[in-house]
Design a protein around this nucleic acid. Structure first.
Length: 472
DNA sequence: TCTGCCGGGGG
DNA sequence: CCCCCGGCAGA
């Protein structure tokens, strides 16, 4: 991912020549605005990229890599981009390109250290070429070698955009403006300002400092809608795909981007308000993400009722007796469902849903349980002045340290991804001395998935322990 | 006999 | 700590 971004970054902003549209004789020049990777064949590493190009005439078009390369070929003198594109993908034959782009996994050494081979870091070359192109176009007077030097310094650490920026500033004015326009017109997402993870999360989520009351004095973890005035230091529910990431970080072993990549559907399983886009222009809706449901309601109460009645078949507001409730949900949800109920059933009022996606199937896999104090009422609770939602927490035992690096060991099991940290507070089963726990009669992983799908079993089942997924 | 899972053990 | 598995015991 790093690598992919790297390459993209090096292409974005470059001037390219796209094939002439019908009726035009000459290729059109444009500026690359964005690169999309389209993986065609994961096994062979063959990838194709789609380049969004802002054309001379102001239109934005998308070209496949071949097209752009062709465009470049037509303007033989302007080779630079082609060469840099080559690195980025499609011709997966090149070992370098492959190593960098495949699987989105980055071998740190490869990327951050200067290339061992006598020559230059591929990126240096690429950059040099790009730089030359710019020279041609804008009479850039910087010498290539200086650039190279600079580049090498940078490449010995993490490649960061500003290194490039400093050297292309002039050009970037124009390009940046174009990019902004383009992204505004094409991107469905509103880039929300980066959340201060360190303040918002480290302080309270990690290190056992996790306290339900640390977010607001009212005890409600809340956000207001639609005026979006969330307290900067208060983790708010996910606003966009982007804003998901900071929240997930702590639970996903820090800066591993590939870990982030894995997150996707699983993080969307909550009845979260559908991302609000712009101030005053969006209505907050709640979508039921219960398997095969997807009902959308406009109020939290509505969705709450919906879940209770439709999915949980119950009307009680009372003591949603955590454990049993959770078990029920577990049972009816199957693999992916365990998270749904974290919204329908109180899980943790101060837990931003997105953060607690990782859950361990079994208590004994976790460390340092933290007990969340119980509160009486359940479900969504409107707070006083602004519309808000809170997850009231039943006596839930949080097993596992949310931010523990060791906890997020990658195991490659799909199940792991769909786990949620919050595990039921199983009322201490078989309290000590007592005899063997009576056999649960519910379906267990073994029954459900069968021996052939052992991979899909919960960890406990795999270990022949008491099933944690289909708890009776 | 099948199946859940406890307890023990290997790495 | 993670994981596997022998073997017990309930269905």
């Amino acid at each position: 991912m790093h690598a992919r971004r790297l390459v993209k970054r090096s292409v974005v902003g470059s001037r390219v020549y796209a094939p002439a549209p019908a009726g035009h004789a000459a290729p059109l020049a444009g500026v690359v605005q964005a690169v999309k990777q389209e993986s065609r064949d994961a096994s062979s590493g063959h990838r194709c990229s789609v380049y969004t190009v802002l054309m001379q005439d102001g239109t934005v078009r998308e070209f496949s890599e071949e097209e752009i390369a062709l465009g470049s070929a037509q303007m033989a003198a302007k080779g630079p981009l082609k060469s840099s594109l080559k690195q980025s993908s499609c011709n997966g034959g090149e070992r370098d390109g492959q190593a960098q782009s495949q699987n989105g996994v980055v071998q740190k050494g490869e990327v951050t250290l200067p290339s061992p081979e006598g020559g230059e870091d591929p990126r240096v070359l690429e950059h040099k070429r790009t730089g030359r192109a710019l020279d041609q176009e804008k009479d850039h007077t910087r010498s290539v070698s200086l650039l190279e030097q600079k580049r090498k310094v940078v490449s010995s650490s993490i490649d960061v955009p500003h290194a490039r920026k400093s050297e292309e500033e002039v050009d970037m004015d124009k390009v940046t403006a174009a990019m902004v326009l383009t992204s505004l017109s094409t991107s469905p997402l509103v880039r929300s300002p980066p959340v201060k993870v360190s303040e918002g999360l480290n302080g309270s989520w990690k290190d056992g400092g996790f306290t339900p009351s640390s977010y607001s004095s009212s005890g409600c973890w809340s956000w207001s809608a639609p005026s979006d005035q969330s307290n900067p230091s208060t983790p708010s529910p996910p606003l966009s795909a982007d804003s998901f990431k900071p929240f997930r970080m702590p639970s996903l072993n820090g800066p591993q981007d590939d870990a982030l990549d894995e997150q996707d559907g699983s993080s969307l399983l909550f009845d979260e308000p559908i991302p609000r886009k712009r101030k005053n222009s969006m209505k907050v809706m709640f979508k039921c993400l219960w398997k095969n449901c997807g009902k959308v309601l406009s109020t939290a109460a509505g969705i709450q009722r919906h879940i209770r009645t439709v999915h949980l078949s119950r009307n009680c507001d009372s003591e949603c007796s955590d454990a049993t409730e959770q078990k029920r949900a577990d049972t009816s949800n199957g693999i992916n469902g365990t998270k749904n109920e974290s919204s329908s059933t109180p899980l943790s009022r101060s837990a931003p849903s997105a953060l607690y996606l990782v859950h361990t199937d079994h208590a004994y896999q976790a460390t340092a349980p933290v007990t969340i104090p119980s509160t009486s009422s359940a479900g969504f609770t409107p707070c006083s002045n602004s519309f808000s939602i809170s997850w009231q927490s039943p006596p839930v035992t949080f097993t596992g340290t949310p931010a523990s690096p060791t906890h997020s060991r990658t195991q490659g099991f799909s199940e792991q991804r769909s786990q949620t940290i919050a595990v039921l507070s199983s009322p201490p089963r078989a309290t000590g001395s007592l005899s063997r726990k009576s056999r649960g009669e519910g379906k267990k992983c073994r029954k459900v998935y069968g021996m052939e799908n052992r991979d899909m079993w919960c960890t406990a089942c795999r270990w022949k322990k008491a099933c944690q997924r289909f708890v009776d």
